[in-house]
Design a protein around this nucleic acid. Sequence first.
DNA 1: GGATCCTTCTTCTTCTTC
Length: 351
Amino acid sequence: MFILNRVACVGGTVVPRCTALFVRHFSACRCLRSAKRRSPYSSVDSERYSSLVKSVMSSRISSQTPDTLQAEDEHVYGPVVKAATPSSRPETRVPKTLHPFLHFKETLETEEPESGPPARIVLNRADRPLVPSVTRILQQTLSPEQIFYLERWKRRMVAELGEEGFKEYSQNLFRQGKLFHSALEDILSSCATRENTNPPETSEYPPEVQGYLESISHVLSDVRAVRATESAVYHDTLNYLGILDCVACYRGVLCVIDWKTSEKPKPFLSNTYDNPVQLAAYAGALNNDANYKYQVEHGLIVVAYKDGSPAHAHQLSSELMLEYWNTWLIRLEECTEQRSRLASTSFEQKR
DNA sequence: GGATCCTTCTTCTTCTTC
């Protein structure tokens, strides 16, 4: 009865399920009507995303019950210790040194660019061998809570799939992400000279990415004037680099766009973890980079789903981008501090 | 030829009630 109650609550869709994993991963989908404990997933269009929820759930099916899983957890990881409330970083924290997000550019473009293929500046690592990348900096400055939850997730996945199974699972996720990105690059490059981005002919692409492409088709129809794809950006004052996914107009607003694939629905910006910080880092670098003759103030994170459910598009205003830019500056400072600590430690050891 | 780089992903409670 305990389980049936939960199953019956998934957006009114009856889903065969009998494992505690459901409780763990999808209890957020319950029809919690009290405002006090409202889950961020409770207002998801559950009918629209029921197929996605089902597919995620069916991939995690196990014959275990909540009790056996809990017993297993305790056996494998020890007694459950409640984690500290995810606090991320104190909101009052500000960067020690402020850097502008936007930069004055003498040759700033004010007109619409001429039609033509989008820019694709290739990253030449040999020119800047020691400059850290956006991804690396974000990885090195994860909060203790993020590390805790990621490690817990990994332990649970390894317990479920085994070391080899987990490795295969991770590689598959990366592979799908890469295939999706290369398909998108192909689509956006070929559409760049046209007024509209026509719906892609999904059958031309590998079967693994067809669902993702279908998922983003409604977003693509609002994308125009693609200016850059998979293009390197470098901030010479702050000394970091990265490769952004795309710069294009979304609903008439020039944005840095980040395309993501996800197994779980991410209907809210808060579900995307560090993605907005990553986006602000790319935009700030682009705005500082002389290779780009324009400024980008807005951002867009598009989360695509394998089963073709409509992607979630999170547009970030210039104000929001500025907030995340400051968060990025803090992360950058943390990374620099870490590096200098490491350098002084190794210096001490050598002495 | 091999190693490394930039990406690609992954996290977010402990509920017993309508």
